[in-house]
Design a protein around this nucleic acid. Sequence first.
DNA 1: CGATGCAATGTTAGCGCTAACAATTTGTGA
DNA 2: TCACAAATTGTTAGCGCTAACATTGCATCG
Lengths: 333, 333
Amino acid sequence: MADVAALAGVSHQTVSRVLNDHPNVRAGTRDQVMEAIRQLGYRRNRAARALATSHSSTIGILTIGSEFFGPQSTVLAIEAAARAQGYFVTVTALDRYDAHSSTEALNHLVDQGVDGVVMVAPFEKVIDALDDAALKIPVVVVAARTTVPESDPAHYVYVDQREGARIATGHLLALGHRKIAHVSGPTGWFDATERQIGWQEKMLEAQAPVIEVPAESWLAPSGYEAGKRLVDSVRAGEVTAVFAANDYLATGILRAFWEAGVEVPTDVSVIGFDDLQISNFLIPSLTTVRQPFRDVGHAALTELLEGVTADKTPKVIAPTLVIRASTAPPKSQ
Amino acid sequence: MADVAALAGVSHQTVSRVLNDHPNVRAGTRDQVMEAIRQLGYRRNRAARALATSHSSTIGILTIGSEFFGPQSTVLAIEAAARAQGYFVTVTALDRYDAHSSTEALNHLVDQGVDGVVMVAPFEKVIDALDDAALKIPVVVVAARTTVPESDPAHYVYVDQREGARIATGHLLALGHRKIAHVSGPTGWFDATERQIGWQEKMLEAQAPVIEVPAESWLAPSGYEAGKRLVDSVRAGEVTAVFAANDYLATGILRAFWEAGVEVPTDVSVIGFDDLQISNFLIPSLTTVRQPFRDVGHAALTELLEGVTADKTPKVIAPTLVIRASTAPPKSQ
DNA sequence: CGATGCAATGTTAGCGCTAACAATTTGTGA
DNA sequence: TCACAAATTGTTAGCGCTAACATTGCATCG
């Protein structure tokens, strides 16, 4: 910076002012400084800047360390939004889905000196890390946590999972189904809980039976297992439709039904959640609930940057139904 | 740090020494300092440290801003490896797959003051950004660039795409296929080029015909289009097997064949590349080539951290064949 | 024409840490 | 016991930037 100042014939402080868009700099001076910067290929040292200003223009993202569609998409969206705002993004992934691992990851981010943290890890234990850390920086949690205690300092942003489940279930009910099983996501995940509640609410409203098949994970193998368990019920006419907690599970279910010779949607309808890139190309193409992850990412960043002033009401984003070929009216008995 | 020093009854420099594991500190002193740190909940300021040492313990990852399986998996693997080494990871995604966007992203990372960059964006234009930037920090590129000019300062780490394609093609040839079409990935991507070359090499060695159907993108819709174009050839017996450049494309192809009533693997075999989470649950389950992304991530980080001393020979990692139900011998005419 | 005010620039003092050197303590052998 | 080396600790000086205050220059007005 001293070199730039010398070349431009000004003091280093004037260079600093130009760089920080300070108003009281004459246009001519500014141009000289800019030209000097260009000639020297000067780049401001961010460490020094961070030291002097005591903020880093960096936000931390805590995410789960697996190839899950939703969190991954959200992280990308947050990164894009942050970059547009001139922020840097430091990502830390979780080794395991427990409180200890979450606390460790959170500390790692805080050590980095981030100005704020977005947690994209929608399982319940991650909340414990918040309590443990007692942070002095703003935190946004992307998770459908509907009951947040007053004491919780975090802001919440999420897609309305419960409503998504209600939409999915409503779609099946509207087609004439009443025997709708739910292959629910693993315990301990907000999304799984909310989707289960939304489905159950809707079923009770319709006075329809509640048939739940819990899956052990979010992934296709668990869906496949659940599908196999459902085959007999479908053949017996006890289940005419399945609401899977996500599209991976739905893929496994479709596979299990196909192996058993159960036809979708003739014998049974299947609906998923997420809308994966390949959901439209499954056999049959999968009706599902789409989540606007880009909006989530954008909302999360906005909430983080303006959050200190704003109210703590959760920002809730609506999902949409995507109707494809895996759902149809039940066959008449 | 001054507070810690005061509480421990030592100088701030001794605290610094404890923190940096300097050998010449008496055990008792070290314990006192650690205790003071604990009591005060002290955290070292990384900006100040970075300023004093002029390195940030942060590595930058440049990646593509989409939900592509391979790059995403690689990024996660690098992050995990970096965290294990005490490094922070700053991620920047690309808006578009061109040189300008790449240069911008790279500059964004350099501005951040990273100690090194890993580029996980295996399209050819990204290389131009390297030339433009003329970096003074180490760079590792995760891309199957087989001909690297001497002048290129970057280190390369990649899965042997060409060999993967040879394995896939060899598998089909071994089953008795000779009319093997390749649905190739979009132009401008190293992986697409290499897979095409591997397939072509193997076909020429076997003196088999070379039938290529280029796809416009890496995604299922392009595979679907390619599949539709292949249906007639399959019916005419001109194509008995398809090697898709990745599993998304293969999913679209399977779908197109299913719609046309072309049965896999009875009428035609299909093999993919990547091994997605759901590839085993497609109908039929997809034979594919698996890439060990975790190894790639690990190798990339090692190369980055030790790269200055090491030779510049690319680190090449071998893929493996995963045989499932989508490939079978051709039906006898 | 001098006093006044404001815009533009310069000067100084840290931000919290580490590197380099200085000073002190401790241990060792003659 | 003392000289000397080694281990341990302390002191000083930045790293490159920004904040706060000081100074200069210039226009405006009575």
